[in-house]
């Protein structure tokens, strides 16, 4: 731990501000709470929102896991994990079951989460209506009135153009039957894991200065049409490393002759399955 920094980098007043905002977010599931986002020692778009939420939550006994696109060993994940190891001195892990707090970019772990775990999402654009309605005052009004016909315009356009709802990530959800919410750019494959999750899920958008939450066991519904119901991705392949047919797969180019393979995006899940298979 680097002694010249306060525990977990942020000063205690900033953490208190963040915790108050988080409490409000938990009290109003799916509602975007403004907060005073701080400059962090990494650029916007690299997880400044998620890091601030994590910093406000970490205690000395926490065990932290950080993933990027499901992997523990990619640049963003490694950097953030090392950052908190240095400024908070907390234990870190790559194993989902061992973590008390997981910060994630663009995935939810395949291993089911528990009530004593918290998942922190990095969010680039917290406003699901933004591409359709650029005015912030107007989107806030639409949220206040629960006036969400506009979101279906986007889904309608998908079907009209592609014959099916082509939105495959950041797929809009309705939280607790009230607030239209961006699940962050997770694949829609992960949307069902949001519904009635035992773990608390917190979302931080540093550049947009918004926090929101899906408390444990909250109803989360993915939008759809009656005749085009919500569906998740399916693959004709199994993971070529662990053989899983139930996980989210990445297509990886393995040589410069166009050779490809499908592997689990969740490296911890994949690794454990292979270890178990060898045992």
């Amino acid at each position: 731990m680097t002694p010249s920094y306060n525990f977990a980098f942020l000063d205690e007043d900033t953490k208190r501000m963040l915790r108050r905002a988080l409490l409000k977010a938990v009290a109003i599931p799916g509602y975007q709470v403004p907060f005073g986002s701080r400059e962090m020692p990494l650029p916007y778009g690299w997880g400044t929102g998620g890091i601030q939420v994590t910093a406000a939550l970490l205690g000395p006994d926490d065990v932290l896991k950080v993933i990027d696109q499901g992997a523990d060993d990619t640049t963003n994940a490694v950097n953030i994990r090392r950052f908190f190891a240095r400024v908070a001195g907390v234990a870190t892990t790559e194993r989902t079951v061992e973590a008390s707090l997981i910060q994630t970019r663009h995935r939810i772990p395949e291993t089911p989460l528990r009530e004593d775990q918290i998942l922190v999402f990095q969010v680039p654009e917290p406003e699901p209506l933004r591409t359709l309605e650029p005015r912030e005052a107007e989107t806030r009004t639409l949220h206040a009135l629960g006036d969400y016909g506009l979101m279906h315009v986007k889904l309608y356009e998908d079907i009209a153009q592609y014959g099916h709802i082509a939105t495959s990530y950041d797929y809009p959800v309705l939280v607790d039957g009230r607030f239209l919410t961006s699940p962050s750019p997770i694949p829609k494959f992960d949307n069902p894991k949001l519904d009635r999750s035992p773990a608390l899920m917190l979302f931080g958008a540093g550049r947009e200065k918004r926090l929101y939450a899906i408390p444990p066991y909250t109803r989360v519904e993915s939008l759809a049409f009656d005749d085009h119901p919500f569906e998740i991705q399916q693959w004709e392949h199994r993971c070529e490393l662990c053989g899983s047919g139930e996980s989210y797969l990445d297509e990886v180019v393995v040589d410069d002759r166009g050779g490809r393979m499908f592997v689990c995006s969740d490296t911890d899940y994949c690794g454990r399955r292979r270890t178990e298979a060898q045992a």
């Binding site: 359709l132 315009v153 356009e157 005749d227």
Partner: peptide, 21 residues
Amino acid sequence: NVSAGANVAERLMALGVRHYG
């Protein structure tokens, strides 16, 4: 920025029509 069909259908969707066909 959305199609003619979506322009016509938007008000219906705002009233809660959820059947694409």
